[in-house]
Design a protein around this nucleic acid. Sequence first.
DNA 1: TTAAGAATTTAGGAATGCCTAAATCTAACT
DNA 2: AGTTAGATTTAGGCATTCCTAAATTCTTAA
Lengths: 219, 219
Amino acid sequence: MITHAMEDYLKTVYLLQEGQEKVSTSAIAQQMEVSAASVTGMIRKLAAMGLLNYASYQGVELTEGGKKIAQEIIRHHRLLELYLVEIMGFSWDKVHDEADKLEHVISEEFEERMSEALGHPTTDPHGHAIPAKDGALQEVAYATLTEVDAGSSATVQHVSDNDPEMLRYFDQLGLLPGAVVHVVAKEPFNGPLRLKVDQTEHFVGREVAGNVFVSPQIT
Amino acid sequence: MITHAMEDYLKTVYLLQEGQEKVSTSAIAQQMEVSAASVTGMIRKLAAMGLLNYASYQGVELTEGGKKIAQEIIRHHRLLELYLVEIMGFSWDKVHDEADKLEHVISEEFEERMSEALGHPTTDPHGHAIPAKDGALQEVAYATLTEVDAGSSATVQHVSDNDPEMLRYFDQLGLLPGAVVHVVAKEPFNGPLRLKVDQTEHFVGREVAGNVFVSPQIT
DNA sequence: TTAAGAATTTAGGAATGCCTAAATCTAACT
DNA sequence: AGTTAGATTTAGGCATTCCTAAATTCTTAA
């Protein structure tokens, strides 16, 4: 039987796996705010179930079966976020936590009816791709705002959706998916970036900028 | 901390408590399909938390605190059922199970937005009262169809919503809240009842009829 | 009134999922 | 190669929630 906790682990591994193929125990532990020992324990169980491949000290990689489950959960999560915002009128910064709880609990029919109500969307309110019912999700590896050259513009594709406070901050600044940002200046060393969003200038810390994913603006 | 399991116990006690003030361990065990021993264990924990009063072998009674939580869960459940049917297009017989899972997980805001979308309703699709945000629920003690005299008519108020198969059966027969039923004949002993619903006659077993709650028809 | 029989509780145990502390392994630097 | 810092695993524990089996208490009917 697959538990909610297992689903959370699979989801986390899937999202950390983007790019790399192996994911370390500690990366999972950090992401989930759980001890590394707990991760080891759960990983062994998931490996025994054939949902991921794992060799001691070598890191972890999802099997096809594990990926499928992870995609299902991520699809739930992102459809929920969109549904909560678009249909129920939630604000952008509250949907992540709500979706984290609901994603494990809704039925296939619930998922299907949400998708229908939304016109079978492919992107959630944070700009993340929504995996198709069975197909894979293809998330382009966007640059972050920290990597944009001073003097260049970029379009916000998605933002990290883990921290509600940061989401509210993005909202204030107008850093929503689709927004065009001009990087006016990048202070030397670890100083803030100077951005222009929608006529207004802002200073934004390096760590914050690292959570905003962008593609070069196409004019 | 209140767990989902605790919420389920409180909800069950609350619903069984209607009418009587004391609820027995075995009644709870039967309703929840759990051993009596498990019930005893959980009851002691809930008593220690001040959510119900309990003395060995004497049965159980919710405190005000316990009632409040139970009402909250029941409100969630019934709003969810209505939302699933009215807004999302679920069929009547599937909403109970879905609501049983979601009721423990949704936030206050989710509850509020559902209520709003539904125009702050007071009755769920099975005909059960929806408790107000903080206020108590007042469910009238209706008769069941088995108690209606042959030759009399009655209006369906609500039906037991635990068994999806039975719900589908009610649906087929037209035994929905609001429907007028005429009891044509009650066979002697434990035989079926002969009903007329919407011009059509049906034979319905005693056990089934016991799950249909009615009030005398007001003409 | 007492002895079934029913209801309830206690005792002991299993699975899940988390923790801390201690042991072990890997990798990197001298 | 040897040491050491960091990552990982093992070991031992705790809380939750369920179970079965055995003991206890209550009820009722002969």
